[in-house]
Amino acid sequence: MLKIDCPFCGVRDESEFRCGGQSHLIRPGPHGQVSDETWAEYLFIRDNPKGWHMERWQHIYGCRQWFNIARHTVTHEIRAIYFMTGQKPVIENDSSNA
């Protein structure tokens, strides 16, 4: 059960949130100038790391705001929470995350 610190509401249980998957995706366009390959890359290909993952969440049963989270996909530790427009944080890899 994750505890997520919504930047607008404070710490809440994960059941109030919805995970929207990998963040920082760049949508290619306009449609007429995008190759099938580029589009497929954007639409389907994901980092899917075993480690720190930058992902976006919505506080769906709360303020309904989207924000970014840096979460470890093995330990589920949350190391950073930042706005949708924020820069991707640099997370140091440490040995405790095996």
Binding site: M1, L2, E14, R18, G21, K50, H53, T73
Partner: peptide
């Protein structure tokens, strides 16, 4: 479970 994970353990929710 609702978010990407490599942890081979479940979530009680």
């Amino acid at each position: 479970d609702m978010y990407p994970s490599y942890a081979q353990r479940g979530n009680f929710h």
